[in-house]
Simulated scan of single mutants.
Amino acid sequence: MKSIISIAFLLQSIINAVNLITAQFPTDPVFRCRDTGNYTTGSDYSRNLKSALNAVKYMNKYNGGSFSSFQGQKETAYVMALCSGVSINWGGNCKDCIYQLNVSLSVTCMLQKEAVMWGSNCMLHYSDRKIFGVLDDWVRIFLPDKKGSLANKPDQFDKALSDLMKKLQGLAAGGTDKKSALGTAVYEKKLVYGAMQCTADLSKDLCTKCLQNIIQAHHTCCSGRMAAIMLLPSCFFSYSGEHYSKWKT
């Protein structure tokens, strides 16, 4: 009986973690169009980009949580899609998320050569430069919880979260497949859930550096906040206290 209770408690903890982490991802897509030049309709890049986006859009399996495609020897287009590891492991429909971003990003950043967009549990990034196997941090989006959910003891909370971030950084960077990690910290006898992930193409060192950028930026953007999400094209970190169940921007 004791073992059954322990298993039930573990499953409930996992469900809580998944609900809280996925609740933080923005319900409305967050995007950035990079001002590095435009392409013209009907150009080689235009055709290559359409082909690369279609390859990602209709992909049935995202290897290691992400999938990349590049098309064309001249004016090559590169596309990277990332599915949240939480979504992959626990039944989230990343394919629909990627499909929706594919449509939205093509319209939102029309004719711009590089853009990135984050959705409910996925990311889509395209460019006219090689973006595979490189640390990409040209844009950083930090979204602290806007409900005013500040920790009662911010120093204690930040210390617990810092320890969790360092732990997740090692687990995610050391992963050979998904490069994602999910864990918890304890603050005032309650659990705080966190998730970190890099795109699967990054090496261990580059994933570590990407996540380190997030850890260093946390104090400036989100110190004492009980929930936040930090997004880079190559990695992200999301966390939430168990008594905060809905993300609001």
Rank of each mutant, 00 (worst) to 15 (best):
M1F: 12
S3Q: 07
I5P: 00
I7W: 07
L11K: 04
S13P: 00
I21W: 00
T22P: 01
T27Q: 13
T27S: 15
D28G: 01
V30M: 09
F31K: 11
R32F: 13
C33Y: 05
T36Q: 13
T36C: 04
N38F: 05
Y39L: 01
Y39P: 00
T40F: 14
S43D: 09
S46I: 00
S46Q: 06
R47I: 07
S51F: 06
S51W: 00
S51I: 11
S51E: 10
A52K: 04
A52D: 05
L53K: 05
N54S: 11
N60E: 13
G64T: 05
S69E: 11
S69Q: 10
F70D: 12
G72K: 07
G72C: 11
G72A: 08
T76L: 06
A77Q: 02
A81W: 08
L82A: 01
N89P: 01
N89E: 14
G92F: 07
G92R: 02
N93T: 10
D96A: 07
I98R: 01
L101K: 01
L101I: 04
N102M: 03
L105I: 14
L105N: 02
V107H: 07
T108I: 12
T108A: 09
M110K: 14
L111F: 03
Q112S: 07
Q112P: 00
M117H: 01
G119M: 07
G119K: 04
S120A: 12
S120F: 02
L124G: 02
I131F: 09
V134Y: 11
D137Y: 12
D137P: 00
V139E: 10
R140D: 03
R140M: 09
I141Y: 04
F142Q: 05
P144Q: 06
D145P: 02
K146S: 13
G148Y: 04
A151C: 12
N152L: 13
D155F: 10
Q156R: 11
L161H: 01
L164I: 01
L168Y: 03
Q169Y: 02
G170W: 02
A172I: 01
D177L: 13
K178M: 11
G183C: 08
T184D: 03
V186F: 11
E188P: 00
K189R: 14
K190A: 09
L191M: 08
V192L: 03
Y193C: 00
Y193S: 04
G194H: 03
C198K: 02
L202H: 03
L202V: 14
S203L: 06
S203T: 14
L206V: 04
L206H: 12
T208Y: 07
K209H: 12
C210E: 12
C210I: 13
L211M: 13
I214R: 02
Q216R: 11
A217H: 13
A217W: 06
C221L: 13
S223Q: 10
M226Y: 06
A227L: 07
A227G: 06
L232F: 15
P233K: 10
S234P: 14
S234H: 14
C235A: 15
F237H: 08
S238V: 15
G241T: 13
Y244E: 14
W247D: 03
